[in-house]
Design a protein around this nucleic acid. Structure first.
Length: 261
DNA sequence: GCAATTTGACCCTC
DNA sequence: GAGGGTCAAATTGC
């Protein structure tokens, strides 16, 4: 078997496990106090990881799940953000349907007719931009007539999500509370930390052909994926794109023969 | 009444 | 001056 395929399957199985938990929670909404969002995140992160590993295995073809990370540049004007010089982290996704439900809450703040384009470009920012000083924004624009391709560009990091993960005890916003889990909820505590992905002990190198970016992933003795803050943000931002999302039923459709050397 | 969306104006970069 | 991103008042919907 092609090296690394077991990692992909491992990540998919983890996503499946979380999906099953989510199903259980949704089937008993009245008796379950478990929030669904962490489970959603775990499912989506697992599939994002699987896709990253999978595209690395098949890197001879163009990668649909591409990231274009650029370094942050100091803002020249405090009032106006330059979309060229103040380049924050970017993620672009082309899909046949506009991404409305990507796991984050967006608020539309504008739309504009773009030159040489038939369609309007819509601008969204994080709904918690003011409350949590989250600078994440996204643009959605239909770019092709025939195939109805929608390009969604994510810019900036979701600070609000990081805050949600790092503040398990206190209020995040006025009137909203985070639910604290005790040891009996250990499975949920694991779900709240989606960056910890149990895999075999080894190092994986992910090379992004589009940006020539190489990422090394290390695993500790506890079979947990070691992810630094930047990697965490990269994985959770955005959690997934529908065009690249692989449903559980599709796992069986994996062509393992293609991994034969 | 409040929140989300719309839309024209404003501002910044090239 | 053109093009694109954001602001903020007006509008709409719940």
């Amino acid at each position: 078997m092609f090296p690394g395929v077991d990692k992909v399957v491992e990540a998919l199985l983890r996503g499946q496990e979380s999906a099953n938990r989510l199903k259980t929670v949704l089937e008993h909404p009245r008796t379950s106090l478990v929030p669904t969002e962490p489970l959603f995140d775990t499912v989506l992160d697992s599939f994002s990881l699987a896709l990253s590993l999978f595209t690395n295995l098949t890197s001879s073809s163009p990668q649909p799940h591409r990231r274009n990370m650029t370094a942050s540049v100091a803002r020249k004007s405090p009032k106006k953000r330059s979309y060229r010089e103040d380049a924050l982290e970017h993620y672009r996704d082309d899909s046949q349907t506009p991404i409305h439900d990507d796991g984050f809450c967006w608020r539309k703040y504008g739309q504009k007719k773009i030159k040489n384009s038939t369609y309007l470009r819509c601008y969204y920012r994080c709904a918690y931009a003011k409350d949590r000083n989250c600078n994440a924004t996204k643009r959605v624009q239909q770019i092709q007539d025939s195939a109805s391709v929608y390009r969604t560009t994510y810019i900036g990091k979701h600070i609000c999500e990081v805050m949600a993960l790092s503040q398990p005890n206190d209020d995040i916003t006025d009137g909203s509370k985070m639910i604290r889990f005790n040891k009996t909820d250990q499975t949920m505590s694991e779900s709240v930390m989606p960056q910890l992905v149990s895999l075999d002990h080894q190092e994986i190198t992910i090379e992004d052909k589009g940006t020539d970016q190489i990422t090394n992933q290390e695993y500790d003795n506890n079979n947990e994926l070691l992810v630094d803050d930047d990697q965490l943000l990269a994985y959770q931002f955005p959690p997934f794109s529908p065009g690249n999302f692989m449903f559980l039923d599709d796992i069986s459709a994996l062509d393992y023969n293609s991994f034969q050397v």
